[in-house]
Structures are given as structure tokens and as C-alpha cells.
Simulated scan of single mutants.
Amino acid sequence: MAVFVALGAFLMTLAGGWTAQRVTDRRHLVLGLAGGLMLGVVGLDLLPEALEAAGGEVFGVPAALLLFVAGFLLAHLVERLLTGRRAGHGGDEHGHRAPEVGLTAAAAMVAHSAMDGIAIGAAFQVGESMGVAVALAVVAHDFADGFNTYTLASLYGNARRKALVMLAADAVAPVAGAASTLAFTIPEQWLGGYLGLFGGALLYLAAAEILPEAHHEHPARSTLLCTVAGAAFIWLVVGVAH
């Protein structure tokens, strides 16, 4: 049942990636929307789930929040290292971004989608009603995942073919994740810790990369409205799912 339901996430991910491809002539609006979606996913979906699942504190701070900060710093470190390496080889002398950063970010989205599938399978292990509720939330926000995966890969100058490969991997990941739960059960605290870490990395990409790029050449109100709309859409999804 979990694998069958995860096929819905597969289709929604592809729909999100297809949408991102079709609006290349409005790139600033795409990036503004992607930034809002990512902000909404982190603040309204990932972080609350991480705080609830991870539990425990380390020196008075919830473990999920520590991992959230660690994820933010890790994303910053990875980007600096990859960008510096590209500059050292003369590949960034015109300010072009390192394609490896985009592929790394897209790969993180794929890993997240796999964890989404695992979450579906684990929820069905608890009960069918729980599985359906989690599946609805995953399927709904996987449109944003597909949209963001393609956008992240293509934003950094990767060829369209590579972006499509990452999109396909992101679509298959939740199905594979759900299937894997037929063999094992993931501890809830581990899942919460992962969500916190991934949330920090995603917030860095939204705040330090996607949104500044969206407003760089087109600082229009329409771009800002797209960002607000993206965050509001995730709020609606989370509200309906709960």
C-alpha cells in the first residue's frame, strides 16, 4: 500500500519539474516562487516535524535546532569550497556559479524525497490512517520538491539533461524509500534529526542563493508576490494535511 501511494509523489514531482521548465522566460518569477516554496517547506513543515520527532536537548537547545544550524553552516561551507575550487581553476572568473553546487543541492533534494518515502512507509507501519495522512502531506509538497530540484540544478549552469536526470531521480526516490520500509523501520529520533539538518541546508539555499538571484535583475513586486505565494501555498498544504 505504501509503495502504491508513493506513486502519487512520483507524479507530483514530475509535474513540479515540468512546470519549472515551461516558465524559463519568467526566470525571476520561477526563482521567487521557488524561494517561497523552500522557505515554507522549512519553516512550516520540516522544522516543526523535526522538533517533534527528534526530542531531547543538548546544553539546553533542542537537538533538532542544533542540527538545523549545522545544516545551514554545512551548506555554506560546501558552497564556499566548491566555488573556491572552481575559481582556483579559472572557472569562476566571470562570476559564474559552480555547477557542482547545484547538483549537490539537487542530490540533497533527492535524499529528502527518499526520506519522504520512508516516512510514508513508516507511517503505514503505525496504522493505515496515519499512513494516509502522511502520504497526503508528502504528495502535496512533492510538487514543490520537483519544482525546486529542477530549478536548483539548472540555476548553477548545469545542462538541461543533467537537471532532468536529477528530476527523474527525485521522482523515483519516494517510491524507493517507501519500498525500503518493507525491510526495516527507521527510528523516529533519527528521522527528526535528518529533517532538522536538511531544513538548515535548504534555508541557506533559499535565503543566500535563490532569493538574491531572483531579485538581482528583476527586483519587481511580482517576484516578491511569487515568494509570498510560495510560502502561503505550503502553509495551505500543511493546514489541509493536519
Score class of each variant (00 low, 15 high):
A107M: 14
G157E: 05
V126D: 06
S180V: 13
Y204A: 08
A119F: 02
M115T: 13
L202E: 05
V138A: 06
L155R: 07
E128F: 09
T151Y: 00
A201Y: 12
Q189D: 12
M166G: 03
A144C: 11
L136H: 10
G131A: 07
A173I: 03
V139F: 06
I186T: 14
V165I: 14
G146N: 07
P187A: 12
L197G: 02
L205T: 13
F124N: 02
W190T: 15
M130G: 08
A135E: 02
V172M: 11
Y204W: 12
G200M: 08
A111S: 13
Y150S: 02
I118S: 02
S129R: 12
N148Q: 07
V126N: 05
I186G: 02
A176H: 05
Y194F: 15
A153E: 03
R161G: 14
T181F: 06
A135P: 00
S180W: 09
E188V: 15
L205P: 02
W190C: 13
A159T: 12
N148G: 00
A144G: 12
P212L: 12
L205I: 14
S129C: 00
I118A: 06
T181K: 05
I118V: 15
A178D: 02
F198S: 09
Y156W: 11
N158V: 02
Q189P: 05
Q125F: 04
